[in-house]
């Protein structure tokens, strides 16, 4: 459990590695199933963010939460990518709608809201 403090790593690659290691350690004990799963997820999220950063030059995603990532993606108009994150992390419909609504309002894209 102490290893989780190692999450405070600066570099992305090292961070992913550490997180995976911590998740593995946690998986050994049954009680921490949820924690280990979420750490797995967090590693995956970091990887996805890395990909996004490469694809969309000039944007920083690393360190943001799932919701923030989705929010930013929709706001910038990358709906397909947002949907990918959604399915990857099994975001419930309701929450996704909220995010979408908020993001579209922030974007002032009223047309899109009406269409959908």
């Amino acid at each position: 459990v102490v290893l989780r403090d190692a999450l405070a790593q600066k570099e992305l690659a090292a961070k992913i590695e550490k997180t995976k290691l911590a998740a593995k350690l946690l998986a050994d004990s049954k009680e921490h199933a949820l924690e280990s799963r979420s750490l797995d997820e967090s590693a995956r999220l970091l990887q996805m963010q890395e990909v996004f950063e490469k694809d969309l030059a000039g944007e920083r995603f690393a360190g943001e939460s799932v919701n923030e990532t989705v929010f930013r993606l929709i706001r910038m108009g990358y709906n397909s990518r947002a949907n990918k994150v959604k399915s990857e992390f099994k975001i419930p419909e309701k929450r996704f709608w909220w995010l979408k609504l908020r993001a579209l309002v922030a974007k002032r894209d009223w047309g899109e809201i009406e269409e959908w």
């Binding site: 459990v1 989780r4 403090d5 999450l7 997180t19 949820l34 924690e35 979420s38 750490l39 997820e41 967090s42 999220l45 360190g63 943001e64 939460s65 799932v66 919701n67 992390f89 975001i91 929450r95």
Partner: peptide, 21 residues
């Protein structure tokens, strides 16, 4: 509880694993 934990981790970041603990 599990449900909420997941929601919180998604919304506010995975560092809150420690918080919940």
């Amino acid at each position: 509880l599990e449900n909420f934990k997941r929601e919180i981790l998604h919304a506010y970041g995975y560092n809150h694993v420690l918080t919940l603990d």
